[in-house]
């Protein structure tokens, strides 16, 4: 547990007046408020820090205690005495210092440093904004492999101790968020429940590259097949197909296999395309005879 410099967090001097603290806090709150920083975990963390700093510095008693014992919070009799004081102060209802709530952010979510100095839970009184009528949204992440989302399947997830049966449609994208209505936190005073938001993180250990519903793969073919043409068997995502390689096929030639790509999200039975790029392998460790024959070929062309 490290010491937290609340003055530094608010960017103010130790001699800052109440008005200066309020001004600094409000300015930072406007910048880092969760409602204006969607999906920004760094801003959310910063917002918690500035709320905590404001909680301490805008409260006369807390500020006094922080200024006196702050740096030495872990050592000495003074700190122990402060701890005892804090125990007794817990009996009293704390006064409001006007912090902000900010969406799903809980005002009680203070650091260990704060709790060790001022007691758990932060303030018991209502913060600046009114508590939500609608329940909190719950966020969850689900790690899947690309193979898992090739077919629609069902899973049971445990979120906050509750089992949620979920159908994961084929073709879900990496980073896609699926919302399950009403499976978040309970509403207040008859308000609607929050939602459960599940983000899919899809790793890909296959040789296929995915772009939406299209897949891309490279197939190595030998020089002779490329020059003279022939058959090759290539792997698709769920099987194999035989392809005819045209004579005089150039390195890097792309072949499109229609409908052999990835399932299209929420369009059952529809698939994207698979693009195969030929990578022509030039023979190595040539024998004397082979070198002679290649030289002959070269001379024929020059």
């Amino acid at each position: 547990m490290a010491f937290i410099d609340y003055y530094k967090i608010l960017g103010i001097d130790k001699s800052a007046t109440t008005a200066e603290i309020k001004k600094a806090y409000r300015k930072l709150a406007r910048k880092y408020h969760p409602d204006v920083n969607p999906n920004d975990k760094a801003a959310e963390k910063k917002f918690k820090e500035i709320n905590e700093a404001n909680e301490v510095l805008s409260d006369k008693e807390k500020r006094k205690k922080y200024d006196k014992y702050g740096k030495d919070w872990q050592h000495g009799d003074a700190y122990e005495q402060a701890q005892r004081q804090q125990q007794s102060q817990r009996q009293y209802q704390r006064q409001s210092t006007g912090g902000y709530g900010g969406g799903n952010f809980s005002g009680d979510d203070f650091s260990d440093f704060f709790e060790s100095m001022f007691g758990g839970g932060g303030s018991t009184r209502g913060r600046g904004s009114t508590a939500g009528f609608r329940g909190q949204d719950f966020n969850a992440e689900l790690q899947l492999d690309l193979k898992d989302v090739y077919e629609t399947h069902k899973r049971v997830l445990t979120v906050n101790g509750k089992n949620i049966r979920l159908t994961i449609p084929a073709g879900v994208e990496n980073g896609q968020v699926i919302k399950i209505n009403g499976k978040g936190g309970p509403g207040v005073h008859g308000g609607p429940n929050g939602d459960l938001l599940i983000q899919f993180n899809i790793s890909n250990a296959t040789k296929f590259k995915r772009d939406g519903s299209n897949l891309y793969a490279t197939e190595v073919i030998d020089l002779y097949t490329a020059v003279l043409g022939g058959d090759v068997t290539v792997n698709t995502f769920d099987g194999k197909v035989k392809l005819k390689v045209k004579p005089e096929t150039q390195n890097g030639t792309k072949v499109k296999l229609k409908g052999k790509g990835f399932p299209i999200y929420k369009k059952e039975g529809q698939f994207g395309d698979l693009y195969i790029t030929y990578d022509i392998a030039v023979p190595t460790n040539l024998s004397v005879k082979e070198k002679e024959l290649f030289t002959e070929l070269k001379n024929l062309r020059s």
């Binding site: 406007r30 408020h33 709530g101």
Partner: peptide, 15 residues
Amino acid sequence: HIKNLESMVRLHQDL
């Protein structure tokens, strides 16, 4: 629409 509405209420009340 409550989610959006709550966001607007907070913008108004908090900021």
